[in-house]
Amino acid sequence: MSVDIIIEDARWADLDIEALCSAAADATLGHLGLDAEAFEISVLACDDARIAALNTSFRGKAQPTNVLSWPSAERGAPTPGGTPDAPDPVRDEELGDIAIAYETCAAEAVRGDIPLHAHATHLVVHAVLHLLGYDHLRDADATLMETLEVEILGKMGLRSPY
Protein backbone atom coordinates (compact mmCIF):
# COMPACT_ATOMS: atom_id res chain seq x y z
CA MET A 1 0.00 0.00 0.00
CA SER A 2 1.17 3.44 -0.77
CA VAL A 3 0.80 5.62 2.31
CA ASP A 4 1.61 9.29 1.95
CA ILE A 5 2.30 10.73 5.40
CA ILE A 6 2.60 14.32 6.52
CA ILE A 7 4.04 14.54 10.02
CA GLU A 8 3.02 17.84 11.58
CA ASP A 9 3.72 16.73 15.14
CA ALA A 10 7.28 15.39 15.53
CA ARG A 11 6.24 13.07 18.37
CA TRP A 12 4.67 10.79 15.75
CA ALA A 13 8.09 10.21 14.16
CA ASP A 14 9.30 8.66 17.44
CA LEU A 15 6.53 6.07 17.04
CA ASP A 16 7.57 5.35 13.42
CA ILE A 17 4.10 6.36 12.29
CA GLU A 18 4.96 5.68 8.64
CA ALA A 19 5.66 2.00 9.25
CA LEU A 20 2.72 1.74 11.65
CA CYS A 21 0.27 3.19 9.09
CA SER A 22 1.58 1.00 6.29
CA ALA A 23 1.33 -2.15 8.39
CA ALA A 24 -2.19 -1.29 9.63
CA ALA A 25 -3.45 -0.43 6.14
CA ASP A 26 -1.87 -3.53 4.56
CA ALA A 27 -3.34 -5.78 7.26
CA THR A 28 -6.80 -4.23 6.87
CA LEU A 29 -6.90 -4.53 3.10
CA GLY A 30 -5.37 -8.01 3.16
CA HIS A 31 -7.93 -9.22 5.68
CA LEU A 32 -10.68 -8.07 3.32
CA GLY A 33 -9.08 -9.84 0.35
CA LEU A 34 -7.95 -6.63 -1.34
CA ASP A 35 -4.53 -6.13 -2.94
CA ALA A 36 -2.94 -3.44 -0.80
CA GLU A 37 -0.49 -2.54 -3.57
CA ALA A 38 -3.37 -1.28 -5.71
CA PHE A 39 -4.40 1.50 -3.32
CA GLU A 40 -3.18 4.71 -1.72
CA ILE A 41 -4.11 6.64 1.39
CA SER A 42 -2.87 9.90 2.87
CA VAL A 43 -2.30 10.37 6.58
CA LEU A 44 -1.85 13.60 8.53
CA ALA A 45 -0.06 12.87 11.82
CA CYS A 46 -0.96 15.97 13.79
CA ASP A 47 -1.72 17.36 17.24
CA ASP A 48 -4.98 18.08 19.04
CA ALA A 49 -5.15 21.71 17.93
CA ARG A 50 -5.00 20.73 14.26
CA ILE A 51 -7.51 17.89 14.53
CA ALA A 52 -9.87 20.11 16.56
CA ALA A 53 -9.84 22.61 13.70
CA LEU A 54 -10.54 19.83 11.21
CA ASN A 55 -13.27 18.38 13.42
CA THR A 56 -14.89 21.83 13.63
CA SER A 57 -14.69 22.40 9.88
CA PHE A 58 -15.90 19.00 8.74
CA ARG A 59 -18.13 17.73 11.55
CA GLY A 60 -19.18 20.89 13.37
CA LYS A 61 -17.64 19.60 16.61
CA ALA A 62 -15.29 22.16 18.16
CA GLN A 63 -13.10 19.67 20.01
CA PRO A 64 -10.21 17.33 19.36
CA THR A 65 -10.84 13.70 18.50
CA ASN A 66 -8.51 10.76 18.07
CA VAL A 67 -8.85 10.10 14.33
CA LEU A 68 -10.80 11.44 11.36
CA SER A 69 -11.24 9.95 7.91
CA TRP A 70 -12.41 11.26 4.54
CA PRO A 71 -13.25 8.49 2.06
CA SER A 72 -12.69 9.30 -1.61
CA ALA A 73 -16.04 7.69 -2.47
CA GLU A 74 -19.23 6.55 -0.76
CA ARG A 75 -19.03 2.78 -0.38
CA GLY A 76 -21.33 2.16 2.61
CA ALA A 77 -23.77 -0.74 2.61
CA PRO A 78 -27.43 0.29 2.33
CA THR A 79 -28.59 -2.39 4.77
CA PRO A 80 -27.50 -2.49 8.43
CA GLY A 81 -24.64 -4.92 8.96
CA GLY A 82 -24.06 -5.31 5.22
CA THR A 83 -20.67 -5.38 3.58
CA PRO A 84 -19.76 -2.15 1.78
CA ASP A 85 -18.92 -2.14 -1.91
CA ALA A 86 -15.27 -3.01 -2.45
CA PRO A 87 -13.16 -0.35 -4.13
CA ASP A 88 -12.13 -0.89 -7.72
CA PRO A 89 -8.31 -0.93 -7.94
CA VAL A 90 -8.43 0.83 -11.31
CA ARG A 91 -11.05 3.47 -10.62
CA ASP A 92 -10.55 3.91 -6.84
CA GLU A 93 -6.78 3.94 -6.48
CA GLU A 94 -6.94 6.73 -3.85
CA LEU A 95 -9.03 5.48 -0.90
CA GLY A 96 -9.02 8.75 1.02
CA ASP A 97 -7.41 10.71 3.82
CA ILE A 98 -6.88 10.16 7.54
CA ALA A 99 -5.84 12.54 10.33
CA ILE A 100 -4.67 11.24 13.71
CA ALA A 101 -4.01 13.40 16.79
CA TYR A 102 -1.09 12.67 19.08
CA GLU A 103 -2.32 14.04 22.43
CA THR A 104 -5.74 12.42 22.27
CA CYS A 105 -4.31 9.11 21.10
CA ALA A 106 -1.64 9.14 23.81
CA ALA A 107 -4.12 10.07 26.56
CA GLU A 108 -6.52 7.29 25.49
CA ALA A 109 -3.65 4.79 25.50
CA VAL A 110 -2.70 5.78 29.05
CA ARG A 111 -6.34 5.62 30.24
CA GLY A 112 -6.80 2.21 28.64
CA ASP A 113 -3.41 0.89 29.79
CA ILE A 114 -2.61 0.14 26.14
CA PRO A 115 0.80 0.64 24.52
CA LEU A 116 0.68 3.75 22.34
CA HIS A 117 1.72 1.87 19.19
CA ALA A 118 -1.12 -0.64 19.72
CA HIS A 119 -3.73 2.08 20.21
CA ALA A 120 -2.49 4.07 17.21
CA THR A 121 -2.54 0.89 15.11
CA HIS A 122 -6.15 0.27 16.16
CA LEU A 123 -7.12 3.82 15.21
CA VAL A 124 -5.51 3.50 11.78
CA VAL A 125 -7.23 0.15 11.16
CA HIS A 126 -10.50 1.80 12.25
CA ALA A 127 -9.93 4.75 9.91
CA VAL A 128 -9.01 2.55 6.94
CA LEU A 129 -12.24 0.61 7.48
CA HIS A 130 -14.07 3.95 7.33
CA LEU A 131 -12.33 4.70 4.03
CA LEU A 132 -13.66 1.37 2.78
CA GLY A 133 -17.26 2.21 3.71
CA TYR A 134 -17.56 0.61 7.13
CA ASP A 135 -19.24 2.62 9.86
CA HIS A 136 -20.58 2.31 13.39
CA LEU A 137 -23.66 4.54 13.41
CA ARG A 138 -26.13 1.63 13.28
CA ASP A 139 -25.78 -1.22 15.80
CA ALA A 140 -25.38 -3.93 13.15
CA ASP A 141 -22.73 -1.87 11.35
CA ALA A 142 -20.86 -1.26 14.62
CA THR A 143 -20.87 -5.00 15.38
CA LEU A 144 -19.46 -5.79 11.93
CA MET A 145 -16.80 -3.07 12.13
CA GLU A 146 -15.69 -4.00 15.66
CA THR A 147 -15.51 -7.70 14.71
CA LEU A 148 -13.27 -6.86 11.76
CA GLU A 149 -11.06 -4.63 13.91
CA VAL A 150 -10.57 -7.41 16.49
CA GLU A 151 -9.77 -9.96 13.75
CA ILE A 152 -7.30 -7.65 11.99
CA LEU A 153 -5.55 -6.61 15.19
CA GLY A 154 -5.41 -10.25 16.31
CA LYS A 155 -3.62 -11.18 13.08
CA MET A 156 -1.17 -8.35 13.85
CA GLY A 157 -0.53 -9.82 17.31
CA LEU A 158 -2.47 -7.10 19.16
CA ARG A 159 -5.21 -7.67 21.71
CA SER A 160 -8.81 -6.67 21.30
CA PRO A 161 -9.46 -3.02 22.14
CA TYR A 162 -13.03 -3.85 23.19
Rank of each mutant, 00 (worst) to 15 (best):
H31V: 08
I7T: 15
H31E: 12
T56F: 10
P161T: 06
E40F: 00
G96M: 01
A52I: 07
E103D: 15
A120L: 02
D35L: 10
G154V: 11
A118W: 09
E108Y: 01
V90H: 09
G30Q: 10
T147L: 07
A120H: 04
R138C: 03
P89R: 10
I98N: 11
T28P: 06
E146K: 12
A45I: 04
A73S: 13
I114C: 15
I5C: 12
C46Q: 01
Y102S: 07
V67E: 11
E108W: 02
T121M: 02
L54T: 01
K61H: 09
I51V: 07
Y102F: 15
Y162C: 11
G157P: 04
H130E: 02
T79Q: 11
R159G: 14
D113L: 14
T83H: 14
G157V: 01
L123H: 10
V125M: 03
L68R: 00
S69M: 08
E149D: 05
R59L: 12
D92N: 14
D48G: 15
G30R: 06
E18W: 06
F39L: 02
R91P: 01
D35H: 04
A140P: 02
W70D: 03
C46L: 00
H136F: 13
P78D: 05
L148F: 05
P64R: 10
E103Y: 08
T56M: 09
A13I: 06
A23E: 11
C46W: 00
V3D: 08
V110R: 08
C21Y: 08
N55K: 09
D16W: 08
S160K: 12
M1T: 13
Y102T: 03
E108V: 06
L148H: 15
T104C: 10
E18M: 09
D85G: 02
A23N: 10
G60Q: 00
R50E: 14
H119F: 15
G157L: 01
T121C: 12
Y134C: 07
E146T: 12
H130Q: 05
A73K: 13
G154W: 01
G96C: 07
D4L: 06
L144F: 02
D88V: 09
T143K: 07
D16P: 05
L129D: 11
R59S: 13
G157N: 01
L131C: 03
T79G: 00
E37Q: 15
A13F: 04
A10F: 13
I6C: 03
L29C: 11
V150P: 00
L148V: 03
V90K: 06
P84H: 06
D47M: 00
P89Y: 14
G33C: 08
E37C: 05
R75W: 08
D85W: 06
D35G: 09
G157M: 02
R75I: 07
S57L: 13
H130M: 04
G154Q: 05
I6D: 12
A45L: 00
G81I: 05
A62G: 04
S160G: 08
E151T: 07
S22K: 09
H31R: 13
A38K: 11
T65C: 15
A13P: 09
L158A: 06
R50K: 07
L20G: 04
T83K: 14
C21A: 15
P78R: 03
D47R: 10
V128F: 11
A23W: 14
R59T: 10
I17H: 04
G154N: 12
M1I: 01
L20Y: 03
L148M: 03
R159W: 03
I17M: 03
M1A: 14
P78K: 09
H130I: 12
T147P: 00
